Amino acid sequence: MVTGATGGIGEAVARRLAARGATVVLVGRSDARLDRARRRILAAVPHAELRTERADLSLLSEVRELAARLGEQPPPDVVVSNAAVIAPPDDVTSEGLQRTLATNYLAPYVLLRSLVGPIGGRRARFVVVGASPTVLARFPVDVHDPAAAPGGRRPAPGLKAFTCYARSKNMNTMLVHALADRLKGSRITVNGAHPGIIKGTGIGEDSLGALKSLSPLLNPFFPGPDVGADTPAWLATSPETEHVTGRFYVKRRQATTAPHTTDPARCDTLWIRTAELTGLPPSL
C-alpha cells in the first residue's frame, strides 16, 4: 500500500512495486485522481494488479476508516507512508488539527499503529518517507506539545509553513524509532527514507510567499519522481533490508539524523503526547 499515490513520488513507488509483481493499493483523497494514476501505471505496467482506496489523510476519522477496511482483508505486507503537504499554519481541518501536522505525521502514526494488530505475526515492512536530515536538524520538535504553532519574531508566512512541514518530517523520523522500538521481537520492520529534493511532487501547492515563488525557479534543476522513488521502493523490497529496522536512509545508504530525533526519551515523550492527541492508548 502506498499513500499519496496519485502523483509524484508515491505514484512512482507504486509503479515500481507493481512492476515487481506486487498487488498495489493506491491511496489518495480523490477518486478522479486515483483513476488517472491507475491508468498511468497500467499504461507503463500493463500487467499491474492495482486497487484504489480513497481517504483524506488530513482527517483522522478517514484514516481510521481506511485502516478498518484494510484490516478486514489480508493486510498489506508493505506500507509506504508517502502522503505529505505544506499547508499554511492557520489551515485547520474540520477536526481542529493543523493540516500539515495531521497529514504528514498524525495520519501515519494512526495508520501504522492500526495495522500492527491485523498484520499480527506476518512479516511486513513499514517505510516512512521523510526529508533531508541536514535541513531538518535546525527544526527540533516540541515533544511536549507537537501541535504547537511556529513562534519567533514574526516570521514570513511561507517560512512558518515550511517550519510546520519540517517539524512534521522530524516527527516522522521519531515515529520510525519509537515504533521500531515497540515492535522489537515482531516480524514488522520500520524504516525512514529521504527521497531527495524532487520536482513534480506538488507538495508546495498550498504554500505561501517566497517558498511558493521559489519552487518554479528551482524545479528544473531537481530530479523527477522516479529518482525520489528509488530509496523508498528499495527499502520496501530489497533482501538487504529485510531484517533492518529503526534506520533512516538517503540514496540507499544509512544516514544519521539529528540527535533530537533519535533520543529515546524524546521519542517516547512524543509517542505518548501523540497518543493523547489522537485518542489512542500509549501502549501499542
Rank of each mutant, 00 (worst) to 15 (best):
A5I: 05
T6G: 04
G10F: 04
E11I: 01
A12E: 11
R15D: 06
G21C: 05
G28V: 07
G28C: 06
D35E: 15
A44H: 11
E49G: 05
R51P: 00
E53P: 04
R54V: 12
A55R: 03
R64H: 08
A67M: 11
L70T: 11
Q73M: 12
P75G: 06
A83W: 01
D90K: 09
S94M: 00
Q98G: 12
R99T: 14
R99Y: 02
T100Q: 03
L101T: 07
N104Y: 05
Y105F: 14
R113M: 06
P118F: 03
R125F: 01
R125E: 04
V127Q: 03
S132H: 01
V135T: 15
A137V: 10
A137Y: 10
D142M: 10
A156P: 01
G158M: 10
L159W: 08
K160E: 15
A161G: 13
A166Q: 03
M171E: 15
N172C: 06
L179W: 08
I188C: 02
H194S: 09
P195E: 10
I203M: 13
E205P: 00
D206Y: 10
L211S: 11
K212V: 10
S213V: 14
L217T: 12
N219E: 15
F222D: 02
P223L: 08
D230M: 07
A233F: 00
W234H: 11
P239K: 08
E240S: 08
Y249N: 06
V250M: 06
Q254L: 11
A255C: 07
T256V: 14
T256H: 10
D268K: 13
I272D: 14
A275S: 14
E276A: 14
L280M: 13
